[in-house]
Design a protein around this nucleic acid. Structure first.
Length: 571
DNA sequence: GTTAGGG
DNA sequence: CCCTAAC
């Protein structure tokens, strides 16, 4: 221990970690996650059915004869955030032992790893993965888990030491005095108990695997890769009962594995919290954390595309037989724009075999869509779910500085030249849309425009958008009758949810979208009462009714003017 | 050509 | 803001 330095926890953080109060998150961030939030996020992700394959792969439930019945996932997802303690207990009781392992694994992602055996299972499994892959790919391991960096193994091991009473950590030793065969022979001579102890010392935790061959394979594997580094690791003498094991080397390759597995275990370095509470916090998942974790977990390659090429996707929009898949280009040009952890719909393919695990670009955890494979429509996000991203992508900076984006202080409401920065007719802009894949414009509605729209609706009623356009937006190139209709719809929505929680309001402010004045929204609601949204469902306005309506419009319009005057003072 | 409505 | 069926 004295040969190592703790360099991933500040003293303060370490001190905090020592205060182990139940239900309180006190640990420092793991090396995988910048925060407990992220760990929780990954935990929640794994709890979702679509990522069950990954969990299965991590835990190797198949070979361990563990299987998770569908009922568990359903049960758990159904519990969502409103589960009481008794409910949770009932769920827990209903789980079989095997399921509890998975449960603990998921919980362990954010819970203290020392509180359960699941982390140990994970570490063991990770080691198994490396062994099965005949891993001279250890370079790959260290590369793929580069996020781990030079994590100090002893951090975890030291923690183990505290709680496991006398389990000593690995010591760095520059003196390489023993050969592989010496150590190998020593392994073979060891009893199972001894191997278990060596294992515990080597990997910093106990293993439930009592199979001597299994244990030996780990040791031997490490020895076989000993030459891969100039530095060796040896067990301190105090780790063993007798001197017979003195000098047994833990080769650097094995140390790499330790780094991987221990780092993986560090995921569990968060204090216990009921997972049901974590479910509420799904939005905090960090994409990179998941990538990092996944790649580290048994060198599983999760090669998510950092950039989505709409053209590539367009190509793949055609099936192998050449038939279209029915994905509109509109949908295809939408792509994830950020590295956030929004729900993504990737193809879930077959689980990777150990043989495939080493290959790049192979589907593991059913994530990647290899080039050339058809994309099923159900795996493409509907545009509606991506609308925000789409807007963000389509918006270009020029629009932000448009004159329309700014309120017109003069507020010549019924004046048609209030926004005559462009003299083009809106239909012209509409025609140019075909060549440009992006939106023709993305200009926010100014308060002035909203007021004009309100006045137009007051005058013509809802549905006569062309008339309103002609009268109030003649010079607005980019405000088509359909735009007016859309805006009115949005105004209606806004007016309905105006009195809802301030959270949404703050969110909008955060995004820089100016809030629609209350007076305007009130007026919108008034008009909504006067004019049902669709005039289709109303009887056609007769000339006389139109006249009567027109007289009302005058007063309405006047009201609108009064409101506008008030607004001009306020805004 | 316009509009409603879904996205 | 786009798309499109329906008017």
């Amino acid at each position: 221990m004295d040969s190592f330095e703790y360099n991933w926890k500040t003293p303060n953080e370490s001190a905090k970690s020592s205060q182990r109060e139940p239900e309180q998150v006190v640990s420092a961030a793991s090396i995988y996650f910048a925060s407990e939030e992220e760990a929780i996020g990954v935990e929640q992700l794994f709890a979702e059915p679509e990522y069950g394959d990954i969990v299965d792969t991590l835990l190797d439930f198949n070979t361990c004869a563990f299987s998770l019945p569908e009922s568990y996932i359903k049960e758990f997802s159904a519990s969502e955030s409103v589960v009481t303690n008794s409910d949770r207990d009932a769920v827990q009781r209903g789980l079989s032992e095997e399921n509890k392992t998975r449960e603990k694994f998921l919980d362990g992602l954010s819970n203290g790893y020392n509180d359960n055996h699941c982390s140990i299972s994970c570490e063991d499994y990770l080691l198994d993965i490396e062994l099965e892959e005949e891993t001279p790919t250890l370079d790959d391991v260290t590369r793929d888990v580069s996020c781990i960096g030079n994590v100090n193994l002893e951090n975890k091991l030291a923690d183990s030491e505290q709680r496991n009473c006398g389990v000593h950590v690995l010591k760095l030793s520059d003196a390489s005095t023993s050969s592989d065969h010496d150590a190998l022979d020593e392994f073979e001579d060891m009893s199972t108990d001894k191997l278990l102890e060596v294992f515990r010392n080597m990997f910093g935790h106990q293993t439930s695997v009592a199979d001597k061959q299994w244990l030996e394979s780990h040791m031997i594997f490490g020895l076989e890769n000993q030459e891969m580094s100039g530095k060796n690791y040896s067990f301190p003498k105090s780790s063993f009962d007798s001197s017979e094991n003195q000098g047994v080397k833990v080769p650097p390759a094995c140390q790499n594995l330790l780094t991987v597995s221990t780092a993986f275990a560090s995921i569990f370095n968060f204090r216990t919290k009921p997972r049901v509470q974590h479910v509420k916090r799904r939005e905090h998942i960090q994409w990179n954390s998941f990538k990092c974790l996944s790649s580290a977990a048994g060198e599983i390659q999760l090669d998510f595309p950092d950039k989505w090429d709409s053209k590539e996707l367009a190509k793949e929009n055609v099936k192998c037989d050449g038939t279209k898949l029915g994905i509109s280009e509109q949908n295809l040009k939408c792509k994830p724009s950020r590295g956030g952890f929004g729900r993504r719909y990737y193809h879930r393919g077959a689980k990777a075999s150990s043989q495939d695990l080493g290959k790049r670009n192979f589907q593991v955890g059913c994530i990647q869509i290899p080039p050339g494979l058809p994309i099923e429509e159900r795996f493409i996000r509907r545009e509606g779910h991506l609308s925000k991203d789409c807007r963000a992508n389509r918006a270009y900076n020029g629009n932000i500085h448009s004159a329309e984006a700014q309120d017109d202080p003069s507020g010549t409401l019924s004046d048609q030249s209030s926004d005559n920065s462009s003299e083009e007719d809106w239909t012209i802009g509409s025609e140019t849309r075909g060549t440009n894949q992006d939106r023709k414009h993305n200009k926010y509605w100014s308060t002035t425009e909203v007021l004009k729209l309100v006045e137009g609706v007051s005058k013509y009623g809802v549905g006569r958008w062309s008339d309103i356009k002609r009268m109030f937006f003649q010079s607005s190139v980019h405000r088509s009758p359909a735009d007016l209709k859309d805006k009115w719809r949005n105004l209606l929505r806004a007016s309905c949810r105006r009195l809802q929680s301030r959270r949404g309001v703050d969110a909008k402010k955060k995004h820089g979208v100016s809030r629609i004045p209350h007076e305007v929204l009130n007026r919108v609601r008034e008009l909504a009462v006067i004019y049902p949204y669709s005039r289709k469902h109303r009887t056609r306005i007769s000339p006389t009714a139109s006249l009567a309506s027109s007289s009302n419009v005058e007063s309405d319009s006047q009201l609108s003017m009064n409101e506008r005057n008030t607004l001009n003072l306020t805004y």
